[in-house]
Structure formats: structure tokens, C-alpha cells
């Protein structure tokens, strides 16, 4: 399990967000919510060891992330980045890169890596894209391939930074349904999102950031009741019951 203990996250020693303590539990979708620039993505990168923590500790199964090599981290946590270049390679080759952390020098892919890739592409609904060049895929299809690459890492935790940005409604729902399914299979899924309604509908827990700190954490109902969402976004978040479940919308 990945835990944040009083983490200050930021750039070049200056914290954007301070004193965050959170646990990303297996079997749960945790969504990180907050206005632009509140430090959600920065915190995500700190949790992944991509940025050093300005203060506090990030623990992977009790070990400080700063003591782990990139390959060790990559076997425990996968990352779906917000912005990514699109290389001119085939989708299957792209997903194979998800196995990089398991390869020893000189990086020859083994049959078990190809099997993991096949399974990951199937899980992400990208099997039919395997032989196609990345440059010829639509935004939604590329997202599936990137997701398959993250799944090929076979990690306990998956971090997704704005996974629905630029996608049409159908693909947005697909991505969030995949996040839900992965959590139901026992993984910890962490999603940074600006889509309040979709995020709250998918999440088991929501963490709301505002004023440079973690303002509130709890179930979507608890977070909504606390009014933290209204304060963080300066809107009024309302909810209605649809088929026995809460649906949230903003005014």
C-alpha cells in the first residue's frame, strides 16, 4: 500500500500543497479534486517519486520512496500521465514498454512479457489496435493504449492524471468504468480529475484540495456534506438520486 505522511509537494523546494496525509488502499478508487493549480498533479508526481517530497514521507509498503530505484517503483505503481508525446511506433510495441521494469540488460522481451501485454490490451479494450501505428489512432484509442501500457506493469496501484481530458463522453465513461473495474479487482486506483460529477460517481473516497492543503477527505457523500467542494471550486454542488445512487452536478 502507498501512504503519504505529512507530505509537502512542490517544485525546487517550494511547496504548492502542504501537510497531506493519505492512504491509497487496495480495492478503492480515490479521486483527487481541486481547482486549477491547487497541487493535485504535483502531489501525484511526488507520490510516484517523480518529484522529491519537499517535506514528509511517501511510503511504499513501509519503505520510503526516495530509497527505491525507478524500476522498483515501476513494479509497484503505474502512471497514466496527463500529457504525452505520441511516438511513431505500433500500439503493441508501446504497451511492451510497460514491461521495461521487469527486463534485465540487454532488454529482450520474454514470452511472459508478451503474454502480459496481450492480457493488458484485452483489459483496456485495445486488442484490436495492436498492429496500428500510434500516430494513426484517435485520442480515445491512444488513451486505451496508454492505459494498457500502465496495466502491463502489473502493479498494485495505478495513478491516473486527468485521464478523461480531451475525450468524448463515451470514452470518458469507458475510462472511469475501467478505473472502477480495476479497483473491484483489488487494485488501488488514484484519479486526478476536473470532472466532479464523473469523479464522485466513480470514487470510493474523495480528497479535496484547497488553500494549499488537503481540505477534506472521505466518501463522496461525506465530502459533499462538508461543503468542501463548494469552497474549493467556488460553486454550488448539488446532488439528485438516480436509480438509487447519487449523481452530482454543479451550479
Amino acid at each position: 500500500m502507498i501512504e503519504l505522511e505529512h507530505v509537502d509537494a512542490g517544485y525546487r523546494g517550494e511547496a504548492v500543497v502542504r501537510g497531506v496525509s493519505l492512504q491509497f488502499r487496495p480495492g478503492e478508487v480515490t479521486v483527487l479534486l481541486g481547482a486549477n493549480g491547487c497541487g493535485k498533479s504535483t502531489l501525484l508526481k511526488t507520490a510516484l517519486g517523480l518529484l522529491p517530497a519537499v517535506g514528509g514521507r511517501v511510503l511504499y509498503d513501509g519503505e520510503d520512496v526516495s530509497q527505491l530505484a525507478p524500476a522498483q517503483i515501476a513494479r509497484k505503481a503505474a502512471y497514466l500521465a496527463q500529457s504525452r508525446p505520441v511516438p511513431s511506433i505500433e500500439a503493441r510495441r508501446m504497451v511492451l514498454h510497460g514491461r521495461f521494469a521487469y527486463l534485465s540488460f540487454p532488454r529482450r522481451y520474454r514470452p511472459c512479457d508478451h503474454e502480459a501485454v496481450r492480457e493488458a490490451m484485452e483489459q483496456a479494450g485495445a486488442s484490436d489496435l495492436a498492429g496500428r501505428p500510434m500516430t494513426q489512432l484517435s485520442g480515445g484509442q491512444r488513451q486505451k493504449v496508454y492505459l494498457a501500457m500502465a496495466l502491463a506493469q502489473q502493479t498494485q496501484t495505478i495513478f491516473m492524471d486527468e485521464p478523461t481530458t480531451w475525450l468524448d463522453v463515451r470514452h470518458q465513461l469507458d475510462v472511469m468504468e475501467t478505473a472502477r473495474r480495476l479497483a473491484d479487482e483489488g487494485r488501488a486506483v488514484v484519479v486526478v480529475s476536473h470532472d466532479l460529477c464523473l469523479a464522485l460517481r466513480t470514487a470510493d473516497r474523495a480528497a479535496v484540495f484547497g488553500g494549499g492543503t488537503l481540505a477534506c477527505v472521505g466518501t463522496p457523500e461525506e465530502v459533499w456534506s462538508s461543503g468542501a467542494l463548494d469552497r474549493a471550486f467556488d460553486v454550488t454542488v448539488r446532488r439528485v438520486s438516480v436509480d438509487g445512487a447519487w449523481r452530482y452536478f454543479c451550479e
Binding site: 525507478p70 513494479r75 502512471y79 500529457s83 504525452r84 511516438p87 511506433i89 514498454h97 521494469a101
Partner: peptide, 24 residues
């Protein structure tokens, strides 16, 4: 040529490359 795979992973952007296990 020996490090061509590392080069491919690096081409995915430094954050993604490091999250895949590459010492960027």
C-alpha cells in the same frame, strides 16, 4: 543500438519514462 530500447522509452517523455522504471 544496444541502448535503443532505453531511447524508445525516453521518447515517451521523462515522467512516463521514469514511471516505467527508466533511470531518466
Amino acid at each position: 543500438f544496444v541502448f535503443s530500447n532505453e531511447m524508445d522509452v525516453l521518447a515517451l517523455g521523462s515522467d512516463t519514462a521514469q514511471s516505467l522504471g527508466l533511470p531518466v
